[in-house]
Design a protein around this nucleic acid. Structure first.
Lengths: 101, 101
DNA sequence: ACTTTATTTCGGTGATTAGCTAAATACCAT
DNA sequence: ATGGTATTTAGCTAATCACCGAAATAAAGT
């Protein structure tokens, strides 16, 4: 989960995820959208993979990346939860965690 | 907005925001929860402030930090939007996928 | 076996980051 | 003015990061 937020900290990586939103793309397809050297992109893919935000599938010489939306979704809603955003019922106690320490 | 995600990339900073969730705390209050030197925390506060995720208010010698929930909220829902998470109506087409470029 | 195409790994560089101690600043009280 | 408490700034180090070009790997076609 920490890896997810680390991965999201870079704009290029966020952009990659965004591109992947509409379906799998090859590394080359993605590279076409950027002004970065391929090895640089390849590094970004590795970070995303380690964060479990994408998975890889090789097809011949081409490697396709696919967004794992559920992982992203879970991380974000986990954060929102822990910050008290969103799904707090407007009528509920308001706060579950109180007074740390 | 990039600064927000950069700020969120560090676990100590996420923890700070979480602590702030239940109301303003002084730098010292917060420091008590961590095993880090005060200057280190002070640096984290600066990052959060630059991301506009918190604001400061001095009260005598004490400085209180307050979470700016709306900023966090906006950044997160902005990201979710751009990834197609969440606010898709459950009955809708399923994906408002777009095909950029 | 050779070539082409797609992508990654290797090795390195400069910038940024998280952490520290020590010193400075700010405010309040005496 | 002196002292005490709260916090930041300054200056440093070690680690991580984003990037690159060159070389390596992988699969497929000739």
């Amino acid at each position: 989960m920490n890896r997810v937020f680390k991965a999201l900290a870079d704009p290029s990586r966020r952009r990659i995820l965004q591109l992947l939103r509409d379906g799998p793309l090859s590394a080359g397809d993605i590279a076409r959208h950027f002004d970065l050297a391929k090895p640089t992109l390849s590094g970004h893919f590795a970070v995303l993979r380690e964060a479990d935000l994408v998975d890889q599938e090789r097809q011949g010489t081409t490697i396709y990346y696919r967004l794992k939306l559920s992982v992203l979704e879970e991380a974000l809603s986990g954060l929102m939860d822990s910050m008290g955003i969103g799904q707090g019922e407007p009528g509920a106690a308001g706060d579950l965690l109180k007074q740390e320490k």
